[in-house]
Computed example of a mutant assay.
Amino acid sequence: MKLIALGAFALASLAAGTASAQNATPINHGAPITGVCIYDNEEVLARSTAGQSVQAGMQRLLTEVQGELAPYSSTIQAEVTALQQGGEAADPGGTRRQALQARAQEAQQLQQTRSNELQYTQGVQLQAIGTAVEPIVIALYQERGCSILLNRSAIYSANPAMDITPTAIERLNAALPSLSFNRLTPPAQPQQ
Rank of each mutant, 00 (worst) to 15 (best):
M1T: 12
M1E: 02
K2P: 14
K2Y: 05
A8H: 03
F9M: 05
L14D: 04
A15S: 14
G17Y: 06
T18W: 03
A19V: 14
S20H: 05
A21E: 15
Q22I: 11
N23Y: 08
P26V: 10
I27S: 04
I27W: 03
N28F: 01
A31N: 10
P32H: 07
P32M: 05
P32G: 02
I33P: 02
G35S: 09
V36L: 15
D40F: 00
D40K: 09
N41E: 10
N41D: 10
E43Y: 07
E43I: 13
V44M: 00
L45R: 11
S48V: 02
S48D: 05
A50N: 11
G51Q: 07
G51F: 02
Q52G: 09
S53Q: 08
A56R: 12
Q59C: 01
Q59E: 07
R60D: 01
R60P: 03
L61Q: 09
L62H: 09
T63P: 00
T63I: 06
E64L: 03
Q66H: 00
E68M: 02
A70K: 14
S73R: 14
S74A: 08
S74K: 12
S74T: 15
T75R: 15
I76T: 05
A82N: 10
L83Q: 05
Q84L: 10
Q84R: 13
Q85F: 01
G86R: 01
G87K: 14
G87Y: 13
E88D: 11
A89W: 01
A90W: 11
D91G: 06
P92W: 02
G93R: 11
T95L: 13
R97N: 08
L100Q: 07
L100V: 06
Q101G: 07
R103A: 13
A104S: 14
E106C: 04
A107G: 06
Q108I: 03
L110R: 15
Q111E: 15
Q112R: 07
Q112M: 06
T113F: 05
E117A: 09
L118C: 05
Q122M: 12
Q122Y: 13
G123R: 10
V124E: 15
Q127R: 15
G130P: 07
P135H: 09
A139L: 03
A139E: 15
Q142F: 03
R144V: 01
G145P: 12
G145Q: 02
G145F: 12
S147T: 06
Y156Q: 06
A158S: 13
A161I: 09
T165I: 01
T167D: 14
I169P: 00
I169E: 05
A174G: 04
A174V: 13
A175S: 13
A175K: 13
L176C: 00
P177W: 07
S178E: 08
S180A: 12
S180Q: 12
F181G: 07
F181W: 10
F181N: 07
N182I: 01
N182H: 04
R183I: 02
T185P: 02
T185E: 10
P187E: 06
P187W: 11
P187A: 07
P190T: 12
P190W: 03
Q191C: 03
Q191H: 11
Q192W: 13
